[in-house]
Design a binder for these strands. Structure first.
Length: 289
DNA sequence: CAGACGTGGTA
DNA sequence: TTACCAAGTCT
């Protein structure tokens, strides 16, 4: 084991958070659910919802037996609710095509709805200990600083970044699995985007970015996501109203959430199109059955 | 490949 | 208060 691996793994053993989906008693399904929920969503908001889901649907078959609408309701306010729909669809696929057992391989995971390259690698590595490089935003940032000597990773994932992640992965499978989660944790706790705690970093002495004097990011400004006035905001309001209602919602209850009728109708139609909302007779709307 | 897609905490 | 940020995926 190289010094780099040794330092990071030692740090992880001492500093890792005690997250429920990382505990020894976490099931592959629990890991899977956590990875979907954690997409673009902070740990603190995921934790309570994850516990609810694990209690209610401890296996893929349990979720598959429910209606997709119940998954959307239980998703609560985690955001990007299509993830709930895809998680439900994945539970159905796992139940029908894999005998209810979460598949282990990257390729089998990748074809499940809502699973991209990051999640396929993460589930394969974290739930099954398979030696596969995981590349998420934390790991990309750590690599950009530690090896690249720059403050931020590129705007989009490059082939060079994939190659680097593969090169840095320890040979030993068990060590490799821990390495992935350790680098991710380092990025989440120490090598953070805004105010990195380099004084607490186990590899600051060999960090290319530190050695270069921690230069500020000098590339083009990244466009922030718009929110106010967008269809996303309207969709959020509409779905929240429907999600929090006991039964089907009448049209007037939706009319009041947004003033612009054209945009309101467009947003509602897109929710129906996505399968997040089901139109019912009598101009009523509900979560999908 | 750039843009769409939620939500809420923090500086 | 505006703007950025949080374990991405899909088209």
């Amino acid at each position: 084991m190289s010094d780099l691996h040794d330092e990071v793994l030692r740090w992880y053993a001492a500093a890792a958070r005690d997250l429920p989906w990382r505990r020894a008693d976490a099931t592959p399904w629990g890991v899977y659910v956590s990875e979907i929920m954690l997409q673009q969503t902070p740990v603190s908001r995921v934790e309570p919802v994850w516990h609810d889901w694990m209690h209610r649907w401890p296996t893929p078959a349990d979720l598959a037996a429910e209606s997709p609408g119940e998954a959307v309701r239980a998703w609560d306010r985690l955001g990007y609710p299509r993830r709930a729909l895809r998680l439900h669809a994945a539970a159905v696929a796992i139940t029908e095509q894999h005998n209810g057992v979460v598949p282990e391989s990257f390729d089998q995971l990748l074809v499940l709805p809502g699973v991209g390259t990051y999640t396929a690698a993460a589930v394969s590595a974290f739930a099954f200990g398979i030696r596969v490089p995981v590349v998420d935003t934390n790991i990309r940032r750590v690599h950009a600083r530690l090896v690249g000597g720059v403050a931020q990773a590129a705007a989009s994932l490059t082939a060079a970044e994939r190659d680097l992640a593969a090169e840095l992965l320890p040979e030993d499978p068990s060590e490799a699995a821990t390495w992935n989660v350790a680098v991710m944790e380092l990025g989440a706790l120490v090598c953070t985007a805004r105010a990195p705690r380099c004084g607490a970093c186990p590899v600051a002495d060999r960090c290319a970015w530190q050695l270069a004097g921690a230069p500020a990011y000098d590339g083009p400004a990244r466009r922030g996501q718009k929110w106010a006035g967008t269809d996303r905001q309207v969709r959020g309001r509409l779905l929240r109203t429907i999600r929090e209602a006991d039964g089907p919602v009448e049209r007037p209850a939706l009319d009041v959430v947004w003033h612009d009728q054209t945009q309101r109708e467009r947003a509602l139609s897109s929710l129906v199109e996505d399968g997040l909302v089901e139109p019912l007779p009598g101009d009523r709307f509900a979560l999908p059955r």
